[in-house]
């Protein structure tokens, strides 16, 4: 097996909150190979954005290890951190708040180049032009400000900024969820084209199952800070094993009007991620929950490369 570009071991990120500790990311491990896309799906509050942000050091991890190209980058500081950040970039969800409204488009794209300190003024102008062409922003918009642009174009600016320093790895945090479907397809195609041309590795965070199915090689499903299932994208949609994944997939409204889908109806509310009980966090809503589900759960290799964190996986999928 080739060396993965990203390896994460037992990563944890806890936040102190009023009256306890919020377990936003709790013991998550995975690898992403070079040039591949790992999709991370889950509902709001499941920790998928925190996972992405912790991975690229926008937040310090509480525990665990992050390896970039085999090198431990968990505890890097200052100068080293700057070098690591050049290799790992992020595209944010909201194209409205993630771009400085007082920067023109080329100023936004040039900023990482200025920070790196490796480019002359002339090189920067040239590089900004290249980047704008690469992501499909018209040259005439160079001096425009964000308020003059629609969401799709702003997101292209965010992509150009992320690509400016030629990173190896990009965390895409819901990059298309603020966009209309016709524009969403344009941006998804752009991300795919860039990946093929430049061998980029993506972690693609989304709550949209049709988008994640389209873009990912592997998918990891999160629920309240924990990874409940991880496998190849096709396998997940063909053979979901965790009760939460099955409920999630059945809840997607299908555009097929001739076959009424059978929805798995979940009852109950999401349990609190503040000082959670040991055991499966989905148990409170799970139709299959039993006594043993309240004991600590372990990841089970259900079949080749298909990991599930559920003690009843073999019984309920028999």
């Amino acid at each position: 097996m080739t060396q993965p570009l990203i390896e994460v071991r037992h990563l944890k990120k806890y936040f102190p909150v009023n009256g306890g500790t919020l377990h936003a990311v709790d013991d998550v491990s995975f690898t992403i190979e070079k040039g591949k896309t790992l999709g991370v799906v889950g509902e709001s509050g499941c920790g998928k954005s925190t996972l992405g942000r912790t991975l690229i050091h926008l937040q310090e991890s509480t525990d665990g290890q992050i390896l970039l190209d085999g090198k431990d980058v968990t505890k890097v500081r200052k100068k080293e951190l700057k070098a690591v950040r050049e290799k790992m970039q992020i595209i944010f969800q909201d194209p409205y708040s993630s771009i400085d409204p007082r920067f023109s488009i080329d100023e936004t794209i040039k900023e990482p180049l200025i920070v790196s300190g490796r480019y002359s003024r002339k090189e920067m102008v040239q590089r900004a032009e290249e980047l704008m062409e690469l992501v499909g922003i018209d040259e005439r918009l160079r001096r425009a400000y964000p308020h003059e642009l629609d969401g799709g174009r702003r997101q292209r600016v965010g992509i150009a900024r992320a690509l400016a320093l030629e990173p190896d790895f990009i965390v895409c945090d819901e990059p298309v969820s603020a966009l209309d479907v016709s524009i969403q397809a344009q941006v998804l195609n752009l991300l795919k084209k860039l990946q093929i041309e430049r061998g980029l590795t993506y972690m693609f965070i989304t709550h949209d199952m049709s988008v994640v199915r389209h873009i990912s090689d592997d998918i990891c499903v999160m629920y309240l800070g924990q990874m409940v299932e991880k496998c190849a994208s096709k396998e997940l949609f063909r053979n979901p094993l965790h009760p939460y994944t099955r409920a999630l997939l059945s809840a997607i409204p299908s555009t097929d009007i001739h076959h009424r889908q059978e929805r798995i109806r979940l009852k109950g509310e999401i349990t609190s991620p503040v000082d959670p009980e040991p055991g499966c966090r989905f148990a409170a809503r799970c139709p299959f929950a039993q006594e043993k589900c309240h004991a600590p759960q372990h990841q089970i290799n259900a079949s080749d490369g298909h990991f599930v964190t559920c003690c009843r996986v073999h019984e309920i999928n028999a």
Binding site: S182, A185, Q186, K192, M209, S210, V211, S254, T255
Partner: peptide, 14 residues
């Protein structure tokens, strides 16, 4: 433009 849930396509049709 909607990504298909049943077919595998390299490119979407925006």
């Amino acid at each position: 433009a909607i990504p298909s849930m049943s077919e595998d396509e390299m490119w979407l049709h925006p």
